[in-house]
Amino acid sequence: MAVIFPPWTNRVPPLLALFSLGAVVSGVALVWYYFSPQYTDVGFEPTQPMPFSHKAHAGELGMDCRFCHNTVEQGAHAAIPSTETCMTCHASLSLPQSVPLAAVRMSWEMDKPITWVRVHQLPDYVFFDHRVHFAAGVGCVSCHGRVDEMAVVSQAEPLSMAWCLACHRDATPNLRPFSKITDLTYDPQNAGYDPNQDPKRKRKVEPPLHCSGCHR
C-alpha cells in the first residue's frame, strides 16, 4: 500500500497554524494601512482647470492666505476666492494677457464660475468649522501643509478621524501665536512657543472629544 502521508506532512499542521495566524495579523495590518486615508488620500493632486500656483502667490510673492481666502475668520468655509479677487490685481497690475490667465478672464467676462476640483474634502457627516480653529490659533499649515511650496495643491494630511482626534486630544503642539496663524514657515516647537504663557490667549483651548463635537 502506497504511503498516503509521507513524513514531511508532519510539518504541515504547525506551519499551517503559523500561516493562518500570520494571515489574520497581516490582513488586519493591510486593511489598517491600505484602506486608510493615510494611504488613499494623502497626495491627492487633481488637475485644476487652470494652473494657479500657490507657490508663486503665497510663497514667492508672500501674500497672506487671508487675502484670497478671506472668509476663514467668519465662516465655516475658507471660501475659494471669487474671480473678482483675481481681477483686483490681474486686470491691470501684472500679466493681464498671459495664457494661463485666460480662464480667469473668460470667467470674468462671461460671468461664469471657474470649476475648481476640491482637494480637502471631509465627509458630509463631519461639521468642520475654520472659524473656531482659527480662533484657537491653529495654523493653516497644520492641516494643509506647506501650500506655499506647492505649484499644484495636493493633500498633505490624511484628514482621517484618528488624525483629527490626535490633535483634539492634545492640541498644544499645533497651537501658535495669533499673529503667526497664516505663517506657513513658523514652527511653534522651534520657536519655543507655550500657549499657556501667551497673554493674548484669553482662554484655554479645550477641543471637544465627544461624538457630537463633530458629528452633529
Binding site: S36, S160, A162, A166
Partner: peptide, 8 residues
C-alpha cells in the same frame, strides 16, 4: 478592537 483610521 481592530485598529482603524477613526481612532475609535
Amino acid at each position: 478592537p481592530i485598529p482603524n483610521q477613526m481612532g475609535t
